[in-house]
Design a protein around this nucleic acid. Sequence first.
DNA 1: AGCCAGGGTCTGC
DNA 2: GCAGACCATGGC
Length: 273
Amino acid sequence: MTETIKFKSCPHFDLNETLHCGQAFRWSEPDESGAFYGIIAGHKLNVYFDGDSLCACGENISDIKDKIYSYFDLDLDYEKIKNLLCNDKILSEAVIFAPGIRILKQDPWEALGSFIFSSNNHITRISGIIDRFCQLYGKEAVGGGYDFPDYERVSRLNKADLAPLRCGYRDEYILDAARKLTSGEVDLDIICSADIDTARKELMKIKGVGPKVAECVLLFGFHRLEAFPVDVHIKRALEFFPDGLPEYALPYAGIAQQYLFHWMRLKSLSGVR
DNA sequence: AGCCAGGGTCTGC
DNA sequence: GCAGACCATGGC
Protein backbone atom coordinates (compact mmCIF):
# COMPACT_ATOMS: atom_id res chain seq x y z
CA MET A 1 0.00 0.00 0.00
CA THR A 2 1.05 3.59 -0.55
CA GLU A 3 2.48 5.15 2.57
CA THR A 4 3.60 8.63 3.49
CA ILE A 5 6.30 9.28 6.03
CA LYS A 6 6.91 12.67 7.52
CA PHE A 7 10.44 13.08 8.82
CA LYS A 8 11.63 15.58 11.37
CA SER A 9 11.94 19.24 10.61
CA CYS A 10 15.10 19.97 8.65
CA PRO A 11 15.90 23.53 7.63
CA HIS A 12 18.99 24.27 5.51
CA PHE A 13 17.82 21.63 3.05
CA ASP A 14 16.68 22.26 -0.51
CA LEU A 15 15.70 19.19 -2.53
CA ASN A 16 16.32 20.67 -5.95
CA GLU A 17 19.76 21.95 -4.99
CA THR A 18 20.66 18.67 -3.30
CA LEU A 19 19.32 16.26 -5.91
CA HIS A 20 20.54 18.21 -8.94
CA CYS A 21 23.97 19.46 -7.94
CA GLY A 22 25.86 16.66 -9.67
CA GLN A 23 26.18 14.13 -6.86
CA ALA A 24 23.27 11.89 -7.92
CA PHE A 25 22.04 11.19 -11.43
CA ARG A 26 18.68 9.48 -11.19
CA TRP A 27 16.30 11.97 -9.58
CA SER A 28 13.50 13.48 -11.66
CA GLU A 29 12.89 17.14 -12.19
CA PRO A 30 10.32 18.55 -9.76
CA ASP A 31 6.67 18.06 -10.73
CA GLU A 32 4.03 20.82 -10.44
CA SER A 33 3.90 20.42 -6.68
CA GLY A 34 7.67 20.41 -6.20
CA ALA A 35 8.01 16.67 -5.60
CA PHE A 36 10.90 14.60 -6.93
CA TYR A 37 10.82 10.94 -7.98
CA GLY A 38 13.70 8.59 -7.35
CA ILE A 39 14.65 5.13 -6.23
CA ILE A 40 16.22 4.24 -2.90
CA ALA A 41 16.94 0.65 -1.84
CA GLY A 42 14.74 -0.85 -4.52
CA HIS A 43 11.72 1.32 -3.78
CA LYS A 44 10.35 4.08 -5.93
CA LEU A 45 9.36 7.07 -3.87
CA ASN A 46 8.64 10.72 -4.21
CA VAL A 47 10.01 13.27 -1.80
CA TYR A 48 8.85 16.78 -1.05
CA PHE A 49 8.66 19.30 1.72
CA ASP A 50 5.67 19.93 3.93
CA GLY A 51 6.72 23.14 5.56
CA ASP A 52 10.09 22.41 7.16
CA SER A 53 9.61 18.65 7.17
CA LEU A 54 10.87 16.24 4.57
CA CYS A 55 8.20 13.80 3.44
CA ALA A 56 8.48 10.61 1.45
CA CYS A 57 5.66 8.78 -0.28
CA GLY A 58 5.60 5.38 -1.97
CA GLU A 59 4.58 1.77 -1.82
CA ASN A 60 5.61 0.01 1.41
CA ILE A 61 8.30 2.55 2.11
CA SER A 62 8.01 2.03 5.87
CA ASP A 63 10.22 -1.01 5.13
CA ILE A 64 13.04 1.33 4.21
CA LYS A 65 12.31 4.22 6.54
CA ASP A 66 15.76 4.02 8.15
CA LYS A 67 17.44 3.93 4.76
CA ILE A 68 15.62 7.06 3.61
CA TYR A 69 16.59 8.79 6.84
CA SER A 70 20.19 7.79 6.33
CA TYR A 71 20.20 8.62 2.58
CA PHE A 72 19.40 12.25 3.35
CA ASP A 73 21.69 12.21 6.42
CA LEU A 74 19.08 13.99 8.48
CA ASP A 75 21.12 13.96 11.69
CA LEU A 76 23.97 16.08 10.39
CA ASP A 77 23.78 19.73 11.47
CA TYR A 78 24.43 21.79 8.35
CA GLU A 79 23.95 25.09 10.08
CA LYS A 80 27.07 24.48 12.11
CA ILE A 81 29.11 23.33 9.12
CA LYS A 82 28.00 26.22 6.91
CA ASN A 83 28.83 28.72 9.63
CA LEU A 84 32.29 27.23 9.83
CA LEU A 85 32.84 27.32 6.06
CA CYS A 86 31.50 30.86 5.79
CA ASN A 87 34.49 32.20 7.73
CA ASP A 88 36.10 32.23 4.30
CA LYS A 89 34.90 34.84 1.84
CA ILE A 90 34.97 32.68 -1.28
CA LEU A 91 33.41 29.67 0.43
CA SER A 92 30.76 31.93 1.80
CA GLU A 93 29.86 33.07 -1.73
CA ALA A 94 29.54 29.47 -2.84
CA VAL A 95 27.40 28.53 0.17
CA ILE A 96 25.09 31.49 -0.32
CA PHE A 97 24.63 30.55 -3.98
CA ALA A 98 22.92 27.25 -3.04
CA PRO A 99 22.63 27.01 0.74
CA GLY A 100 20.30 24.01 0.67
CA ILE A 101 22.83 21.49 -0.68
CA ARG A 102 23.48 18.43 1.47
CA ILE A 103 25.75 15.48 0.76
CA LEU A 104 23.70 12.32 0.27
CA LYS A 105 24.64 8.87 1.55
CA GLN A 106 24.21 6.86 -1.61
CA ASP A 107 24.69 3.16 -2.03
CA PRO A 108 28.46 2.55 -2.44
CA TRP A 109 28.17 0.38 -5.55
CA GLU A 110 25.75 2.78 -7.19
CA ALA A 111 28.13 5.66 -6.47
CA LEU A 112 31.06 3.67 -7.83
CA GLY A 113 29.25 2.65 -11.01
CA SER A 114 27.79 6.09 -11.56
CA PHE A 115 31.10 7.89 -11.27
CA ILE A 116 32.81 5.38 -13.51
CA PHE A 117 30.31 6.50 -16.17
CA SER A 118 30.95 10.12 -15.24
CA SER A 119 34.56 10.34 -16.39
CA ASN A 120 35.17 12.94 -19.10
CA ASN A 121 31.43 13.15 -19.67
CA HIS A 122 28.56 15.64 -19.33
CA ILE A 123 26.08 15.32 -16.49
CA THR A 124 23.05 15.15 -18.79
CA ARG A 125 24.66 12.34 -20.71
CA ILE A 126 25.72 10.49 -17.57
CA SER A 127 22.08 10.46 -16.48
CA GLY A 128 21.02 8.99 -19.80
CA ILE A 129 23.60 6.22 -19.64
CA ILE A 130 22.63 5.32 -16.08
CA ASP A 131 18.91 5.34 -16.97
CA ARG A 132 19.51 2.88 -19.79
CA PHE A 133 21.76 0.78 -17.53
CA CYS A 134 19.01 0.49 -14.89
CA GLN A 135 16.23 -0.19 -17.38
CA LEU A 136 18.21 -2.90 -19.12
CA TYR A 137 19.76 -4.73 -16.19
CA GLY A 138 18.22 -3.44 -12.95
CA LYS A 139 15.59 -5.25 -10.93
CA GLU A 140 12.09 -3.82 -10.93
CA ALA A 141 11.65 -1.53 -7.99
CA VAL A 142 8.68 -1.68 -5.62
CA GLY A 143 6.21 0.87 -6.95
CA GLY A 144 7.70 1.02 -10.46
CA GLY A 145 10.93 1.82 -12.21
CA TYR A 146 14.21 -0.04 -11.97
CA ASP A 147 16.93 -0.20 -9.37
CA PHE A 148 20.63 0.20 -10.07
CA PRO A 149 21.80 -3.19 -11.40
CA ASP A 150 23.50 -5.60 -8.97
CA TYR A 151 27.20 -6.02 -9.59
CA GLU A 152 26.81 -9.82 -9.66
CA ARG A 153 24.50 -9.47 -12.64
CA VAL A 154 26.78 -6.96 -14.34
CA SER A 155 29.79 -9.19 -13.81
CA ARG A 156 28.21 -11.77 -16.13
CA LEU A 157 27.68 -9.27 -18.97
CA ASN A 158 30.06 -8.42 -21.79
CA LYS A 159 30.81 -5.38 -23.90
CA ALA A 160 28.17 -6.26 -26.47
CA ASP A 161 25.54 -6.37 -23.73
CA LEU A 162 26.52 -2.84 -22.76
CA ALA A 163 26.50 -1.43 -26.31
CA PRO A 164 22.94 -0.06 -25.93
CA LEU A 165 24.18 2.16 -23.10
CA ARG A 166 26.40 4.09 -25.56
CA CYS A 167 28.84 4.74 -22.73
CA GLY A 168 31.91 4.58 -24.98
CA TYR A 169 35.16 3.24 -23.59
CA ARG A 170 33.72 3.14 -20.07
CA ASP A 171 32.09 -0.21 -20.84
CA GLU A 172 35.21 -2.17 -19.84
CA TYR A 173 35.56 -0.08 -16.72
CA ILE A 174 32.12 -0.92 -15.35
CA LEU A 175 32.68 -4.59 -16.19
CA ASP A 176 36.01 -4.58 -14.40
CA ALA A 177 34.43 -3.00 -11.34
CA ALA A 178 31.56 -5.49 -11.24
CA ARG A 179 33.92 -8.45 -11.69
CA LYS A 180 36.35 -7.34 -9.01
CA LEU A 181 33.52 -6.80 -6.53
CA THR A 182 31.97 -10.16 -7.35
CA SER A 183 35.25 -12.01 -6.99
CA GLY A 184 36.06 -10.18 -3.78
CA GLU A 185 39.29 -8.77 -5.21
CA VAL A 186 37.87 -5.41 -4.20
CA ASP A 187 35.72 -5.40 -1.07
CA LEU A 188 33.29 -2.58 -0.30
CA ASP A 189 33.06 -3.59 3.38
CA ILE A 190 36.82 -3.32 3.75
CA ILE A 191 36.79 0.08 2.03
CA CYS A 192 34.04 1.16 4.40
CA SER A 193 36.07 0.46 7.51
CA ALA A 194 39.54 1.26 6.17
CA ASP A 195 41.42 4.51 6.65
CA ILE A 196 40.94 6.85 3.72
CA ASP A 197 44.31 6.26 2.03
CA THR A 198 43.82 2.50 2.08
CA ALA A 199 40.29 3.00 0.77
CA ARG A 200 41.59 5.14 -2.10
CA LYS A 201 44.11 2.48 -3.09
CA GLU A 202 41.47 -0.26 -2.91
CA LEU A 203 39.12 1.65 -5.21
CA MET A 204 41.91 2.45 -7.66
CA LYS A 205 42.52 -1.25 -8.22
CA ILE A 206 39.56 -0.94 -10.56
CA LYS A 207 40.24 0.02 -14.15
CA GLY A 208 38.71 3.41 -14.86
CA VAL A 209 38.93 4.51 -11.24
CA GLY A 210 41.61 7.16 -10.77
CA PRO A 211 42.02 9.77 -8.04
CA LYS A 212 38.98 11.84 -8.97
CA VAL A 213 36.48 8.99 -9.29
CA ALA A 214 37.82 7.38 -6.10
CA GLU A 215 37.30 10.64 -4.25
CA CYS A 216 33.71 10.92 -5.52
CA VAL A 217 32.93 7.38 -4.42
CA LEU A 218 34.39 8.03 -0.97
CA LEU A 219 32.41 11.23 -0.58
CA PHE A 220 29.05 10.24 -2.07
CA GLY A 221 29.06 6.49 -1.40
CA PHE A 222 30.98 6.22 1.85
CA HIS A 223 30.24 9.61 3.34
CA ARG A 224 33.88 10.50 3.89
CA LEU A 225 33.28 14.20 4.21
CA GLU A 226 36.99 14.98 4.03
CA ALA A 227 37.25 13.48 0.52
CA PHE A 228 37.86 16.17 -2.08
CA PRO A 229 37.20 15.35 -5.75
CA VAL A 230 38.92 17.72 -8.16
CA ASP A 231 37.33 18.08 -11.60
CA VAL A 232 37.61 20.95 -14.10
CA HIS A 233 35.22 23.19 -12.16
CA ILE A 234 37.02 22.63 -8.87
CA LYS A 235 40.35 23.28 -10.61
CA ARG A 236 39.00 26.69 -11.58
CA ALA A 237 37.68 27.29 -8.08
CA LEU A 238 41.05 26.39 -6.61
CA GLU A 239 42.58 29.38 -8.39
CA PHE A 240 40.90 31.36 -5.60
CA PHE A 241 42.80 29.29 -3.01
CA PRO A 242 46.51 29.48 -3.88
CA ASP A 243 47.36 27.93 -0.51
CA GLY A 244 44.54 25.39 -0.57
CA LEU A 245 41.35 25.43 1.46
CA PRO A 246 41.58 26.96 4.93
CA GLU A 247 42.59 24.36 7.47
CA TYR A 248 39.40 24.58 9.52
CA ALA A 249 37.45 23.54 6.41
CA LEU A 250 39.42 20.36 5.78
CA PRO A 251 37.29 17.95 7.86
CA TYR A 252 34.37 19.07 5.65
CA ALA A 253 36.36 19.58 2.45
CA GLY A 254 33.92 17.40 0.53
CA ILE A 255 30.95 19.52 1.55
CA ALA A 256 32.85 22.69 0.70
CA GLN A 257 33.76 21.08 -2.60
CA GLN A 258 30.09 20.48 -3.44
CA TYR A 259 29.11 24.10 -2.83
CA LEU A 260 32.08 25.22 -4.95
CA PHE A 261 31.34 22.73 -7.71
CA HIS A 262 27.70 23.69 -8.07
CA TRP A 263 28.50 27.40 -7.92
CA MET A 264 31.26 27.22 -10.55
CA ARG A 265 29.34 24.87 -12.81
CA LEU A 266 26.18 26.96 -12.93
CA LYS A 267 28.18 30.11 -13.42
CA SER A 268 29.96 28.61 -16.42
CA LEU A 269 26.66 27.24 -17.79
CA SER A 270 25.20 30.73 -17.70
CA GLY A 271 28.21 31.97 -19.63
CA VAL A 272 29.88 33.97 -16.85
CA ARG A 273 33.63 33.69 -16.87
C1' DA B 1 30.53 22.69 -36.42
C1' DG B 2 33.28 22.44 -32.86
C1' DC B 3 34.02 22.55 -28.02
C1' DC B 4 33.52 20.41 -23.95
C1' DA B 5 32.64 17.25 -20.24
C1' DG B 6 32.47 15.43 -12.27
C1' DG B 7 39.18 11.50 -16.21
C1' DG B 8 41.89 7.47 -16.88
C1' DT B 9 45.27 4.70 -19.28
C1' DC B 10 49.23 4.05 -21.70
C1' DT B 11 53.59 5.35 -23.47
C1' DG B 12 57.83 7.71 -23.50
C1' DC B 13 61.05 10.38 -21.03
C1' DG C 1 57.37 10.97 -11.21
C1' DC C 2 55.34 13.72 -15.18
C1' DA C 3 53.81 15.39 -19.75
C1' DG C 4 51.14 14.30 -23.79
C1' DA C 5 48.38 11.49 -26.99
C1' DC C 6 44.40 9.10 -27.05
C1' DC C 7 40.04 7.36 -25.84
C1' DA C 8 33.69 7.22 -27.30
C1' DT C 9 29.85 9.92 -27.11
C1' DG C 10 26.53 13.51 -27.81
C1' DG C 11 24.55 18.01 -25.47
C1' DC C 12 25.17 22.55 -26.24
